[in-house]
């Protein structure tokens, strides 16, 4: 009986979660989730924009495009870091590495944003993008002209997002690789496998679930990042990007950067609430799927190594 008395306190997180969802639902008035809302239309209407001028389709494409590209890069790099520090490095440098990556998890996203905007952008515009165009121009997305507004665009956003999520994915992947039973690793080595062969044939298959969940949680983080993306993605041009150098927009960064307008236009306000709801659902689904895979979790990944 006493156990149930404490339950409301234990359910504080659930209550807050419920409150967030309920308030957003009420604010949206549950209207306008029709076909036009999910459409891909985008045109600039003088005066009050509403769902008929912008469909969320464009924003979702921009969101998934930037998040998945940065995730591909981040997965490759953080898997390399994780394997290196768990398998190849001696214990002390390995621990040091994980401490440094965890430290970097704390650098605020606005700081990544201003660095991307002021420091990286000129480098991208003058050096990286022209050389990418020369070398990989034949690949879809890598050819085509630079954008009119300057070097701020999809590629810069992808790069900044990649650097931002690497600490999280590395911490989660390290934990997944470390949780492979030592017995199995030693059994692999005892049959005369090299370290790499044990990684390839024992550690990666056994840690598969944990690795997937690291990838998904990184994806959730990239999807939801608003400030840094808003700063480097090139203003608020609402368009599907013709190539990687062009500007585009994401749901989160759009919501964040449109505050001023929302104060003036009630219709835009409702649209942004609906965008928030969609973003919430997407992020929650990604997180729930990630949680199904393992016990390692987001809230404690870079401090306690996650998990219970």
């Amino acid at each position: 009986m006493g156990a149930w008395l404490g339950s409301p306190v234990a359910l504080i997180p659930l209550l807050i979660l419920g409150a967030v969802v309920a308030v957003l639902l009420i604010a949206s008035g549950l209207k306008d989730f029709g076909l036009t809302f999910w459409g891909f239309q985008y045109r600039f209407v003088p005066g009050e924009p509403d769902a008929s001028s912008w469909g969320i389709g464009v924003f979702l494409v921009g969101t998934f495009l930037t998040a998945s590209l940065s995730l591909v890069l981040a997965t490759a790099l953080s898997l390399a870091l994780a394997i290196s520090s768990v398998v190849y490095l001696p214990p002390l440098p390995g621990r040091l590495l994980s401490m440094v990556t965890n430290l970097l998890a704390g650098i605020p996203s606005v700081v990544y944003g201003i660095w991307g905007f002021v420091v990286l952008a000129p480098y991208f515009g003058l050096t990286l993008e022209p050389s990418l165009r020369d070398v990989l121009g034949w690949l879809p997305g890598f050819g085509g002209p630079a954008s009119d507004i300057g070097p701020w665009g999809t590629l810069l956003a992808v790069f900044v997002l990649t650097i931002m999520i690497i600490p999280l994915t590395t911490a989660l992947m390290r934990e997944a690789l470390r949780s492979v039973p030592r017995d199995l690793v030693e059994a692999g080595l005892a049959v005369g496998a090299t370290r790499w062969e044990v990684v390839r044939r024992v550690r990666l298959p056994v840690a598969r679930n944990g690795l997937w969940s690291a990838v998904l949680l990184g994806f959730g983080r990239a999807l939801g990042e608003s400030v840094a993306v808003a700063m480097v993605i090139g203003g608020t041009s609402i368009a599907l990007p013709p190539n990687l150098y062009a500007s585009t927009t994401t749901v989160a960064s759009f919501i964040f950067s449109q505050l001023d307008s929302a104060l003036i236009y009630p219709n835009l306000f409702v649209l942004l609430v609906e965008f928030s709801l969609v973003l919430l659902v997407v992020a929650v689904v990604v997180n729930l799927v990630a949680q199904r895979f393992t016990r390692v979790e987001l809230a404690t990944a870079t401090t306690l190594g996650g998990g219970e």
Partner: peptide, 22 residues
């Protein structure tokens, strides 16, 4: 409770911001 906590950690900060705004 644990599930709710983990879901809450995964909600984008901007969504919480908009919730607070309203």
């Amino acid at each position: 409770a644990r599930l709710a906590g983990n879901v809450l950690a995964g909600i984008p900060a901007i969504v919480l911001g908009y919730f607070g705004y309203y």
